[in-house]
Write a protein that binds this DNA or RNA. Structure first.
Length: 234
DNA sequence: TACCAGGTCCTCG
DNA sequence: CGAGGACATGGT
């Protein structure tokens, strides 16, 4: 049972997830449409979402993004200009709002200082270099950097999150750290952005609805047959 | 009520 | 390096 077969089982069970959620023109609420970000505004919305969702449920992030949309703040210059306390109040529902307001402002400041305030300039870097640049920004760790690279810059890197770690551990595929898990996925799968995006989304769906931290739904889990702990013994 | 949610930084050993 | 605390809201 290899990682690609697991992918196919999840896709079979859940269908296409349509990540990353994006806000349509004229709307305020992000939706999973499967549409790739084509405009700067859409790419930036993904960056914002990736930062706001750090250790926070997407539901809470969604409200914050709705607020930002209403105020037309999904804009690099406007985030740079707005007073930090006002920004913090607007993203309040996302939790850690003071810290995250600072991180959003740090990100756009970095972009303005080094890349003429344009994501396209930053994203034109080769993937490894892009990752180094993102990781040099305070508040952007591995998962956030990789989410931005995969879903906003559309380059093929595999995102590891708490769900992925928990699922791999429970399946019996190893209690590994971020780098080890990423290496495991990327060395055994075709380096394809679409595949990596869909796979990660499927793992999130599995982790959120089946392989939950407490009270997992092992009985109806599509991976039950190949799991090391099919009855939640761990 | 306590735990959980699509982490990261800082400090300390 | 890895463990432990801080950061904070909203749902169950």
């Amino acid at each position: 049972m290899d990682l690609y077969q697991i992918y196919k089982m999840l896709l079979d069970a859940f269908g296409e997830q349509g990540w990353w959620p994006l806000t349509d023109e004229g709307e305020v609420r992000p939706k999973h449409t499967g549409k790739k970000p084509s405009k700067e505004r859409e790419r930036f919305e993904i960056v914002i979402g990736a930062i706001l969702t750090q250790n926070t449920s997407w539901k809470n992030v969604e409200r914050a993004i709705e607020n930002l949309n209403r105020e037309n703040l999904i804009d690099i210059q406007k985030i740079d200009e707005i007073e930090i306390n006002k920004l913090a109040a607007i993203i309040r529902s996302a939790g850690y709002f003071n810290q995250k307001a600072r991180r959003l402002k740090d990100f756009v400041r970095f972009l303005i200082d080094n890349y003429d305030g344009k994501l396209e300039n930053l994203f034109s870097l080769e993937m490894r270099r892009l990752r180094e640049e993102l990781l040099s920004i305070k508040g952007i760790g591995k998962e956030t950097a990789d989410s931005i690279i995969l879903y906003s810059a559309l380059q093929p890197i595999f995102v590891i999150d708490a769900y992925t770690k928990r699922i791999m551990k429970r399946l019996g595929l190893g209690d590994k750290n971020y780098d080890e898990l990423q290496e495991m996925f990327m060395s055994s799968l075709p380096k394809d952005q679409r595949l990596f995006a869909e796979y990660h989304a499927l793992l999130v769906h599995l982790g959120k609805n089946y392989c939950k931290k407490s009270k997992p739904n092992c009985k109806v889990c599509p991976l039950n047959g190949m799991c090391k702990y099919p009855d939640n013994l761990n």
